[in-house]
Design a protein around this nucleic acid. Structure first.
Lengths: 253, 253
DNA sequence: CGAGTAGTTGACGATTGTCAAGATGGGTGG
DNA sequence: CCACCCATCTTGACAATCGTCAACTACTCG
């Protein structure tokens, strides 16, 4: 644990070329000299702490952010102080792409735990991309991925029931942890039940009940924030909609 | 009516520089000579008819598509022949951006009525964008808009009830028609009740009931596909969640 | 150690989906 | 040109999922 912390803090300072996330982040597919040019515009800040904001809704847009370690949530604040959670972001994931349109952030971003975050001035990134085709392409790919991911989420919210949503959520986290070199079967949630519910369009109580039910059914072991995936296939067949009847509907012509 | 048709068909052939959509499509903000370069790579096809596909899920990706006249739906087919509608696309809107990631279309696209569609070979567009900064920026903006729009839809599906969803849908169409020079208060739906329901995550019957209720409450006039917005403000206050209680929830910390 | 927040569990009700039957209208063929 | 047919839409009755309210437990953090 102490070891992990030290490694994390060293990571904060490392340039893209030495960063373990290079294969899923912006540098993916870039030639070494182009990575250096990218490195030159990346700002690396001190670690942020739980509750710190990367930006708030309506802030003017200057930088994209990439999570390096830790996790971040994006959310839409509502007048009455409520929050609709829009996404959870793990290391290597880019935040802020929706702000290019109006040069203004459409949502807020807050770190969920002590996290390191890289900052990329978008205007300089855009200039660099114009001169580095592989970077330009990678930017398009990352934006495309954001669109595809959100489309996937639309399907989840549009036609899946509570149980399918939570199962899909757990599997998504599992897969993302795996790609980042963490265990895919044993991890800690950095977000609250309430935040999970908000993200999945469910009440806290429903999330809580589902966790206990999944545990009773032997799909997972849950101990507050600590999750162990016991029966991955079971979860997958839930997502596939084994019990989903709305699926059968047709939307003809 | 005959007049409208003739105008539509003339539109099909016009180059970007003469196209009435130039202010909301790719050419927005481009210098005239750059619009000509863009024109050079745009393919303009014969009109498509109801039910024709632009592409199907898993097709390999070569072109982006822009609706010129008519309307198109994107949807995710499911094994059993069902469809989950992902979006409805009006003139000036780009389709296919989610396919850049894997060079493969993640959904299918089908025209809802006789429509004209422009085709843009993405690799040539990418090359051109690298040499025309304003085009590159416009491409980023359009992708950003796609992300922002989907985020908006996530909020709709995540925390709005049936009535709020349908009201938001009608207002969205109204606004989009207005920007395109059509009436914002009197229009025809090119999609079925079933497709609306699929898009909004509701059963057909719920959509149908809501239409009659909205009409009874004097918000709209509905006559099958013909919609007239009577009380725009009433619809807006519905969307704002006048009756929505889930809104009051907090997602603390 | 105490207070407040997060999580769990139970009881209940409302919204919305499901099933079924009927109405409407557009399209086609005689 | 009319009539029939089939898909779409509407309406009603019922049921189930999931949200709401409430009480209680268990952490976490000063």
């Amino acid at each position: 644990m102490a070891d992990r912390k030290i490694i994390s803090f060293e990571n904060i300072k490392v340039a893209c070329k030495n960063c373990s996330l290079a294969t899923l982040c912006l540098p993916m597919g870039l030639a070494p000299e182009d990575v250096e040019r990218l490195d030159a515009i990346v700002k690396r800040n001190r670690p942020l702490h739980r509750g710190d904001h990367l930006f708030r809704q309506d802030d003017s847009f200057h930088n994209l952010f990439v999570v390096k370690t830790g996790s971040v949530k994006t959310y839409a604040p509502s007048e009455d102080g409520g929050e609709q959670v829009l996404g959870f972001h793990l290391p290597g994931e880019i935040i802020g792409l929706d702000a290019i349109l109006n040069n203004r952030h459409g949502c807020s971003a807050k770190v969920l735990e002590t996290s390191a975050v890289c900052e990329l001035p978008f205007d300089r990134l855009e200039d660099l991309a114009a001169n580095v085709p592989s970077l330009q392409h990678q930017l398009y790919r990352l934006m495309s991925k954001e669109i595809a991911d959100e489309t996937h989420m639309l399907m989840l919210l549009g036609k899946k029931n509570a149980e399918e949503r939570l199962a899909a959520f757990l599997l998504s986290l599992s897969n993302r942890f795996k790609r980042r070199g963490f265990s895919s079967t044993d991890f800690y949630l950095s977000m609250s039940r309430h935040e999970i519910g908000s993200y999945l369009g469910l009440a806290v109580e429903t999330v809580s009940r589902l966790f206990t039910r999944f545990q009773d059914e032997g799909l997972v072991r849950v101990e507050r924030k600590h999750i162990q995936i016991i029966d991955r296939e079971g979860l997958e067949s839930l997502v596939a909609g084994q019990r989903n009847h709305r699926d059968q509907q047709q939307a003809p012509s």
